[in-house]
Design a protein around this nucleic acid. Sequence first.
DNA 1: CATCTGACGACCG
DNA 2: GCGGTCGCCAGAT
Length: 114
Amino acid sequence: MSWDPVFRFVQQIPRGRVLTYGALAKALRLPGGARSAGRAMAATPSGKGIPWHRVVGERGKILIREPYASLQRKLLASEGIAILESRVDLKRHLWKPPKKSARKHQTPKKRIHK
DNA sequence: CATCTGACGACCG
DNA sequence: GCGGTCGCCAGAT
């Protein structure tokens, strides 16, 4: 399984925003759902600038186990993302992907009349 | 080939 | 809100 599309997608999450595994799976239509998103993140190559820490569980919960959980909290905090009651404040930081953000160049679609 | 194991999430008690 | 079960599915044992 190639998780490349997932990595590219995650890479587009803006600084200071987060996404849930479920939303990620849904946006990319991953077979297997959220759990697939989780597997993809588990396979995240390090050193490629992929902001894996911006992916959290439903309702903002950090699901990865220690010692990475601490790192994730730290990284999130460094982006100004608040963590309340051990979970990210989704109300404030949830990112809503355009629909399919993995585009190389946006479709102009500037035709004003049809 | 049989089982177990998850960076999930919906459901239920 | 928390813990247990279940569906899901690719890898590891």
